[in-house]
């Protein structure tokens, strides 16, 4: 196997470029190197002006998501050897505005997360003296999968509906709503339903399923959204039967 590889990196400097361009770098190809190691090599050895986000290097901070050969991935968990002999293409996350090089503007995503009240909503708090809100392992299992989200935005990048209609609230936000809806300690399901039953909420999703494919934490946002559609439809039917409250 060759001991070097070409990494084709998207560059964009807002003051100089009208649109992104690519730049090729030759990087060492090592068995234990991930894409992020390649980017760090470029930054340290070849071109210090390259901009990208990263932090933990262990798949938990959710900041190093990029498009590698057209697939949204965590670059800290994607090995170079899987793309040998290359060239391997590294681009900024799709469906987001590009700020510079591989850095995207995530303010749209950050703005919509709190819309679904992603915290435990209580209408009446139990007295502190009564102790904690207890939960059985079965009740934990109901939502545990959805609590694994690390906000890496790979699902937004994979979702064609979000790409076409930026008003769509998107996979992670809906999965996060389900994470709290299914929590036995939470009482906020009705409030979240009001937000998500809106046309920009659940209904834009056409179950492409790419969010689930892209998710590095097996959250399965696509499944969460379909389950929530059923809940929302049943709640709507109930409201017709019961009349206006």
């Amino acid at each position: 196997m060759a001991d070097t590889m070409t990494m084709r990196v998207t560059r964009y400097e807002p003051d100089l470029d009208h649109e992104p361009r690519t730049q090729d770098f030759s990087i060492p190809l090592r068995d234990n190197w991930v894409v992020l190691d390649g980017l760090n090599y470029i930054k340290d050895q070849l071109d210090g002006t390259l901009s990208y986000r990263w932090s933990c290097r262990m798949g938990i901070c959710g900041s190093c998501g990029m498009m590698v050969d057209d697939e949204p991935v965590l670059t800290c968990a994607t090995f170079l050897v899987d793309y040998a002999p290359g060239p391997i293409r590294v681009e900024p996350l799709a469906n987001f505005p590009v700020v510079r090089d591989l850095v995207v503007d995530i303010s749209d995503f950050i703005e919509r997360l709190p819309r679904v009240s992603p915290w435990l909503v209580r209408h009446e708090d139990e007295p502190v003296d009564d102790g904690e809100y207890l939960q059985t392992p079965g009740e934990l299992a109901e939502y545990e999968q959805y609590s694994m989200c690390i906000n890496c935005m790979l699902c937004y990048s994979a979702c064609p509906v979000y790409g076409l209609d930026p008003g769509f609230i998107g996979p992670a936000a809906i999965a996060l709503a389900q994470r709290y809806n299914l929590d036995s300690r939470d009482q906020g399901a009705a409030d979240r339903l009001d937000v998500l039953i809106h046309p920009d909420g659940l209904w834009g999703c056409t179950f492409v399923g790419e969010c689930t494919t892209a998710c590095p934490k097996d959250v399965d946002p696509a499944g969460a959204i379909q389950r929530y559609k059923l809940t929302a439809a049943i709640e709507t039917l109930k409201s017709y039967v019961e009349g206006p409250s």
């Binding site: 339903l193 809106h198 209904w203 559609k229 929302a232 709640e235 709507t236 409201s239 017709y240």
Partner: peptide, 16 residues
């Protein structure tokens, strides 16, 4: 109470 939009009903018919 959820908004009484027709979308959930359309989706139920779609699913059936």
């Amino acid at each position: 109470m959820p908004h009484r939009s027709a979308e959930p009903l359309a989706w139920l018919a779609f699913s059936a």
